[in-house]
Design a protein around this nucleic acid. Sequence first.
DNA 1: ACCTGAACACCGTTCAAGT
DNA 2: ACCTGAACACCGTTCAAGT
Lengths: 213, 213
Amino acid sequence: MGIQKEQVVAKALELLDETGLDGLTMRRLADALEVKAASLYWHFASKQVLLDAMADALVAEVAVQPTTAAQSWRERLMAVAVEMRGALQSRRDGARVFAGTYVTMPNVMRVGEMMMAPLREAGADTRLASWGAFSVLYFVLGFVMEESGLAPDAIPAAELEQRTTSFLVHALTMFPHLHAARQDIFNPDFDSRFQFGLDLMLDGLAARLNPSR
Amino acid sequence: MGIQKEQVVAKALELLDETGLDGLTMRRLADALEVKAASLYWHFASKQVLLDAMADALVAEVAVQPTTAAQSWRERLMAVAVEMRGALQSRRDGARVFAGTYVTMPNVMRVGEMMMAPLREAGADTRLASWGAFSVLYFVLGFVMEESGLAPDAIPAAELEQRTTSFLVHALTMFPHLHAARQDIFNPDFDSRFQFGLDLMLDGLAARLNPSR
DNA sequence: ACCTGAACACCGTTCAAGT
DNA sequence: ACCTGAACACCGTTCAAGT
């Protein structure tokens, strides 16, 4: 009967959680599928093609919630951004897998479309809507890369503490603003920090949607 | 006499331009330095440590231009963001090298400090200044990752064309907003697109610095 | 159509041994 | 203090051969 593409991608994402991106090899994946490594090349031209498919599958989990008429464009766009962050965080190294990818994959396009829609309906022209949507996507990606780089399974606790100490020593002697803000910089409430950055962009978009005010 | 850390990092960045991140191996780097691969481990505990040093060296090129009193906080923050984009683009796969890194490296801290300074002097509290600065950094990183993924030396022209076609086919049949905005989405004026996204965030920051208006 | 055996040309990393 | 030889335990990928 053999293996199917979708099974391979699903198993690869499963394995990703266990091994991380650096530990995910074609041989290990083949083992998990009870097949030989060479077989994978019948279904995927290269490891990169498989990684692209994984990225697409990751983003496929960004659910389209039925639009409530009561929701503002801002709430709707925010919801997609939050979902996107969740998708990138749903698997270990998810952001890194996605980062090697381009916006031309169907499910990434779908997310772009879902971000553009509320902007368009609120009166944005194609440039404002598309550049705005992609700008939000770039922020989300950058945020999650940093955020998940600090996750406990990505970095040993001892090393994190060492980095923290090193940061504080440098800050104290050379970077007064970082030192003054150390409480905020090490604030572990990533939800609030994400919301904060998102709001900055949404405010900028709002100003362009209502240039009169 | 032997090799020095700085020479190794400099040569590694040089080689990065030739080979790309995937082609940069310890053995090739050793060859370029006319040394054996094992010797590198005397200076760097692992390849990852070397990559961290490369990321730091990349960001070291973000120059501090002497602040002109005439410049607004907005101009100063923008200038650092533009410099940061330039640094990440100065080497092939620069953004990918940097993306594996954390904000605890001295030169990354320096950039954070340079972004925070104008905000603080404009009256921002530590939270607004630090979270704002890092939000801008996340946008810059996400932007350059996408931007340089589309660069001619990162992707063969034939494949880029194929992706474009695939995008348009999908857009036509499934994603009306993307299709309507296709001219803007494929607009190659990345400077303008970068400026656009940056302005969104800066507007958001401006609103928080002058909440009275 | 789909899988395997076997090989090719590499990797990162370690470590005893050299100078 | 710094480098090398030689090895270990892997990689991604190809391809003739099998069913």
